[in-house]
């Protein structure tokens, strides 16, 4: 899943192919039905929960013209809807969400 997004971010040709047929470009990759659905809808919140690194995911969001604040909100909604991040660096020590981070740091607000 991340391999596809990594290659998508690097390749204007793959971006064109993805725009033309989102399912066809995923054929070479070994993906679950859930991953295919998240990549084709697209469901940024689900992709985040599935473990896509934000440094990769933010470019995918930009490709879909998703504004920055909307991108952040879609990830928050994903955690709310689908539960904690399942894999990757955000799950490494247990991603506990924005509220817990706020409390642990003793800070208010945030973007």
């Amino acid at each position: 899943m991340q391999k596809f997004l990594y290659e998508l971010n690097r390749s204007p040709q793959l971006q064109s192919d993805y725009a033309a047929d989102r399912h066809a470009v995923l054929q070479p990759y070994t993906l679950t039905d859930e991953e295919v659905a998240a990549l084709t809808e697209p469901d940024v919140g689900k992709l985040y929960v599935l473990g896509v690194n934000g440094q990769i995911l933010m470019h995918f969001a930009a490709l879909h013209q998703i504004e920055w604040q909307d991108y952040l909100q879609q990830m928050r909604d994903g955690v709310e809807s689908y539960g904690p991040v399942r894999e990757g660096v955000y799950a490494m020590t247990g991603y506990e969400g924005t509220r817990a981070h706020s409390e642990s740091l003793g800070q208010e607000g945030g973007i």
Partner: peptide, 12 residues
């Protein structure tokens, strides 16, 4: 920083 995550904008 917590870049490109739901916590983006949080700074210690």
């Amino acid at each position: 920083h917590w870049p490109a995550t739901p916590d983006s904008g949080r700074i210690n």
